[in-house]
Structures are given as structure tokens and as C-alpha cells.
Design a binder for these strands. Structure first.
Lengths: 219, 219, 219, 219
DNA sequence: TATGAATGAGAATTCATTCAT
DNA sequence: AATGAATGAATTCTCATTCAT
């Protein structure tokens, strides 16, 4: 269990955990297992890992895993939920007063990419599990629907629009790339996503400008 | 084993096979296993199936599997190669004299989608395994490179360009959709792909026109 | 823990317990666990239940089990002892002055069946664990020995006699049956038991008459 | 796998098996596992053994067990069926022309006891699993029903009658006893069973005489 | 070549038991 | 005394792989 909120699970996981279980509550252990699992999923994908991998990574007994999760799938879902909730909550205030769905979409996407840049494990995890989480998907759908209704994008099939946006993001995250120029790359991908959806070039430019500003303020 | 080359593996697989193995050659059995495996991969993805699934689907003994393949991965590769070789060979004559890389890309993509429409199992397989095969990827990269060099697309990172194109295709194939209007949908997806890559609207329109013509001639 | 000694463990066990543990003494908790365990044993037999089953039934933590018992076997023994002591003590006064071993046996058996009729869980428990308890067995052996010595029964092997009597009782209790006519059924079984042991018909009739009287007085 | 039909599974099981698997067919291995399992069940009862016990006893891999049975329960059922089928088939010719249900019952019971005497493992198995097999139970019920209809026994509840007969047999087999005088003991138990069911003393005597004759002829 | 049978390695799952609070 | 958490030792179950026919 991390002693400070930013300490990350790493090679010292097991030891770290052992020294900390004294004051560990159930929720903390659960969160700890999830954090460690994210690394495992990021590295090996959603299908390869076996329960022992998660137990070892978290420094707990295999049977302890079952105290918290029944299947690796359940753990995966919990991990996805944890991560996307995190990102979603960071997006909410930024788009609170924003009515333009293109900007909302771009902002949401940027926050995902931003976190992926800051935390490469998060990026790898996202690419690996091919999901932005149920909550993230819900928000994205709402914005896509609004964009369609307002004639902002030319792809009118919302399922297809969602697939395209997600496909671009997932495959972009999956593709290995240098960490420098990461931001330019993210902007490029977001731009490509909006173009793919059929947003007009001016709207795309506007959205990208907004992102740049947001980021300046955020840092 | 199919008696005619277009018979498809289905519920009568095992029986069908048994009656045919008398005159079966090695190559035919191998091809038969691959055909059946495609169905399995299409339905369950590349990781879930176990060897027994392929053996059952093909109506052969588990141990027979080892006569032809060493691992499920090897079978997967063979299946991908088989399918994409098929498509690639159908693309080659169509783009033989075509120098415009946008048109070449669009044509190649269209042939994939076209086969996916005609043979939904192929489409499901492609979406499931997230690959267009090494040969297909090679062709796509060559065309992408040319497009970048000729300033036809604005995304200059070829790896990223490839990821985006593949991501859109795979997720589009993965998304369930009605079979009517399948062609319009494919055109939409190809258009979105070219737009994502940053091709100019006139070039995109030109490419789409070409596709329509090709299809007319092909049928 | 039951607030009155006749309250039975049921669906409200856990809640009931929680509200009562405030003033609970060690002995009471122990008795409560045993009572709940009887239900569990009655339903699932002596081998199937795991410690968690008893803890859940009693509404206590698994680890609390260990404060009172070391193994499920120990709990089983305690449960058997509790129940049979109960019955034995009700038999003692009825046969205090009775010297006829056939009547003593019949009376003892009847008290077991009687309790099984009044408390079906007791009956199910007895049939399930195949035991009348060490004290009950001791009494039964003494009476059987006397019966053999006095030539009242034709089976002279006391171990066999005991097995037969117990076998009949256990299997009779195990067999599902309607609750009406339960008494006639019990009389029939006792009669069959005495006949199996080789008691003479007149002695059997006499013993059954005695039982009928006893029961009238007892109610 | 036994080389001769009477060789019994014993300490040399594993070796014996290994040398024999050359010509072993599926049915033979299955039968071999069942034979070895009977010993295990006889010694430890139906609940205690784990799959590894059966595998070890038969000298096969744990996974081989799963080729033949899914659960220990399934193996138990197969073992019961195997054994009782064996006994039933030996009873059939003896009672083929016999219409008196008392004699039929006594003969059937005797054949069970007889085999238990000849093969103590069989006896221990029977006592341990408390079952004479579905086929045996079916025959017994038919004879009991006939006996009730013809007024040959005083217990008219067929379920109860069956329970009593089975209870006596099982507990008698369960009780340890010297192997000498085994036949007298069996006769005693059968006599007790018929008496318990309420057969008249003359009929009981007649049935026992019949048994004695049968046995003389059989040997 | 095709196969049924057997298997060992490993992965999933259960459960009795301990311990700090 | 009671408990929630953690755990290690079985135990169950799966599956890739080998082998003799």
C-alpha cells in the first residue's frame, strides 16, 4: 500500500506492502491490488495474466486475491473503473460550462492522452485493455450524440462514431513511440479523430486551440 | 474437408470431414483446419480458444493438430496469412497501374471491407484478431509512405498513420451492425480513415469515386 | 443467542445474535453455536459442512469458531452430546424402576422418536449423523445385554444387536415421511426393531402398551 | 489392470498397471479405476477420499481420472453400479422361477451377504456407501411391494420397509466382526430383517431353508 | 497420417487456521 | 471475547503435449 498517494507500485511492492499492512483496511488493500494489477495488465494485456501474477505483483497470497475478486475479469473491470473514474473527474470541471460538443470531446480525449503521457503505465493499460471505462464511454456517447444532432460531425451512426474514436485512441496508445513530442503527437491524434468523425476544419482548429489553453492553465 | 472449394465449415463439419478424409492430402487437411479455425477465432478472439476447440471444430483428434501446427499462435498466423493473401491477391490487379497512393490505400481498404461484407466470418475474424496480415500491412505501409512523401496526407509519422488506419478498420469491423447498407457504411469508414490521415477532401472524393467504379466492374 | 431457551435458530439468526451478544457469556455463545450447527448437520450431514457454514449459521466470525471448537468433528461431538444428553435425561425417570429390558429399550427408543417428531430438526440430525450419542449407546448396550442374559431376545451378539437397532432407527429417521401419523410410524418402527432383535410377540405387545401409557402421562 | 479376472488391486497396483497399459482399452482402464476406487471407498467411506487418492490407488495420473469421471460422486455411482450389477446378475437365475416374495428377498439379501463374506472389501464398500445400487433397490422394492400386496409382511409402508431392510444390512456390514461363523451371522441378520418387516415365523424359516439349499448348490 | 489414451505442469479454487486489533 | 484480514496448504480442474498403435 502506498504510504504517500503518489508512490507507485514497483519492484519493492511486496516489501512495501508487508510493512504497511499493519494499518491497512480492506479498502486500501483492494486499491493496492488494483494499482498493482494495472501494471500487470499494462504489460501483458487483459488475457495473459493469471491470478498468481496479480498476487505476486501485490505481494499478497493467492488466496487473498479471492477475498477481493472472483475472477481476473472482475479485477480488470475494477481497474478500468478506477482509472477512468480518475480521468473523468478531471475532465468534468474543464467542460462544465462548455456546450460545444466538439470541444467537449477534444477536451475529454486530451485528458486521457495527457494522463497517458504523464503516466505511461496508464497509457499502456488503456491500449492494452481497449477501453476507456463505462463512465468515459457514457460521456463520450453523450457528446457524440450532441455533435450529431447539431450537425457538427458527418458520421451519423453513433455506434460507428464511437468505434472510430475509440479505435484511433486505442491503437495510437498501443503503438510504441518516443516520449518526446508526446504532446504534439496527442494533438495530432485528436485532430485525426475529429477529422475522421467529419468535424469541419475550423471547428477542429478551435477545439485544438482550446486544448492548448487548458493545458497551460492546468500546469 | 470441403469437396468444393467454397463449401464452408459448419455444423456438419465433423461428419463432412470424416467422409472426405479417405482421399485427403496433407495440404487439404491443413487448409481445412485453418478454415475451421477462422470461425473459432472469429467467435472467440485470438486468446480464448484452446487446441481442443480447433480440433473439435475441424472434427479431428487433438493430436492431429500437432501434425500441422505447434501452437495456437502458429495456427493464428497461418489463418491470418491465408485470409490476407486471399484479399491481397484480389487487390493487386486493381492497383497494378495506379500510382496515386490515396487511391491505392482506398482500394486496398475497400477490398478488405468488401470481403467482410460478403463473408461476415472474415469480418469478424479480422476485427477479432486485429490484423490485416503481414503482407497487407507491408502494402499498406508502402502506400502510406508514398502518400507521406508526396504530401498527400498530413500525418507524417508512418507508424502512427498505420495505427490510425488499422484502429479504425478493426474497431469498425468489431462493432455489430445491420447487414443492409453495409456498402455505404464501408465507404463512410474509408472516407473517415482518409480524413483521419489528413488527405484533402478532393482526393478523398476522387478515391471514393474510384472505388465505386471498381466495384461496378468487379461484380 | 436465544433469549428464551426454546427460541430456535432460524433465518433471523445473525441479527438475533448480534443484538444479544452484549450480555452473552461464553457458555451461551457456545450453546448458540451448537444449536445452529445442529441445523447445519441436519441438513448437510456430518462431512459436507465447512467451518464457514457454522459461522454463517450462527452469525459469528469464522475465527470465533476457534474460540470454542478446534475442528468440525469436535463441534459434531458436542452437538451429539448436547442432544442425546437431553433425551437421555428425559428417559431416566421413566425407566427408573423398570427392570424389563425390553420395556426399557422400547421406552428409550420411543423418547428418541418422540423428540424427533416434536423437533424434526433433531430427527434429521440423528438420521444424518447416524448416532444416538455415547451416553445413549451406553444405556442401550446395558439394556441389550440384560435382554440377552435374560433370554428376552434371540440375537446374542450384542454388537450385532446394537447395529441392527441403530440401523433401523437411523434409516427410518433418514427416510422422508409425512408428519401426520408420525406416532403410529414410530410405534411401527419400534415394533420392527424389537422383532428384529428376536423379542417374543407378547413382550413386544407389552412394551408397546407401556409406551402408549407413558406418552399419555407425558403429555 | 488385472491380467486375470480375479487379480485384485493391491499394493502393486501402480506397477501392475504400468506393465499392462500396453493393451489397455478405455473400458479396461475405466474398470480398473473403479476396482481400485472400491478399495478406497471401502476403507475411507464415500466422502473422505480426494481425487488424488483414486489416481494413486489406480496408478494413473490425476488428469487421467478426469478422462473417465468428472467428480468423485460420479466414480462412486459407477462403483456402486458395477458391484450391484454383479450381485444382481447372480441373483436373477436363482429367483427366476420363484414367486414367493419373502424367498426372493431373502435370496437377494443372501447373495449380497455371501459376496460380502467372500470379498470383505465388497462388504466394507457396501457398509461404507450405504447403498445396494439403483438396480438392487429396484428389485428389492418390487419384492417388498409384492410381499405387502400378498399380506406376507406387516409393514405396509414400502419406503419404511425398504429403509428398515437397508438400515439393518448396512449397519450389520459396517460393524466389525470375526470372519468365522460369518454365514451364521448372515443368516441371523436376514432372519432379523424378515422379522422386522413382519414376516411370519414359518415363512421366515422356509426362506432360510431355501437359502441354505441354494448355497449348497452354488458351491 | 491419424488417433485415442495418458500425462505433467500449471492455474483456479477452497478452506482450515493464525494474528493483530 | 470477538473479529476482519491474511494466508498456506490442499484440492480441483485445465490443457498443451507425448506416445504407441
Amino acid at each position: 500500500m502506498p504510504k504517500t498517494k503518489h508512490s507507485e507500485p514497483d519492484v519493492a511492492k511486496a516489501e512495501h506492502h508487508r510493512t504497511a499492512i499493519g494499518q491497512a483496511q480492506r479498502a486500501k488493500t483492494r486499491a493496492w491490488i488494483i494499482q498493482c494489477a494495472i501494471h500487470v495488465f499494462a504489460e501483458h494485456g487483459p488475457d495473459a495474466p493469471v491470478i498468481d501474477d496479480f498476487a505476486k505483483a501485490a505481494g499478497v497470497a493467492r488466496s487473498t486475491f479471492y477475498t477481493y475478486f472472483q475472477t481476473t475479469r472482475e479485477l480488470l473491470d475494477a481497474a478500468v473503473a478506477t482509472l477512468s473514474d480518475d480521468v473523468i473527474s478531471s475532465i468534468a470541471p474543464l467542460v462544465a460550462g462548455e456546450s460545444d460538443p466538439i470541444i467537449r470531446l477534444a477536451t475529454g480525449a486530451w485528458m486521457y492522452y495527457r494522463k497517458a503521457i504523464v503516466d505511461p503505465v496508464f497509457g499502456a493499460f488503456l491500449g492494452s485493455v481497449s477501453s476507456i471505462g463505462p463512465l468515459g464511454a457514457e460521456h463520450a456517447r453523450a457528446d457524440l450524440r450532441a455533435a450529431i444532432e447539431q450537425g457538427e460531425i458527418t458520421i451519423h451512426d453513433i455506434d460507428l462514431a464511437e468505434s472510430i474514436a475509440l479505435g484511433i485512441m486505442v491503437f495510437a496508445l498501443r503503438t510504441p513511440h518516443a516520449s518526446d513530442h508526446a504532446k504534439e503527437r496527442a494533438i495530432t491524434v485528436i485532430s485525426a479523430t475529429l477529422a475522421a468523425l467529419g468535424a469541419s476544419p475550423p471547428r477542429i482548429r478551435k477545439a485544438l486551440r482550446k486544448i492548448e489553453q487548458l493545458d497551460l492553465g492546468a500546469r
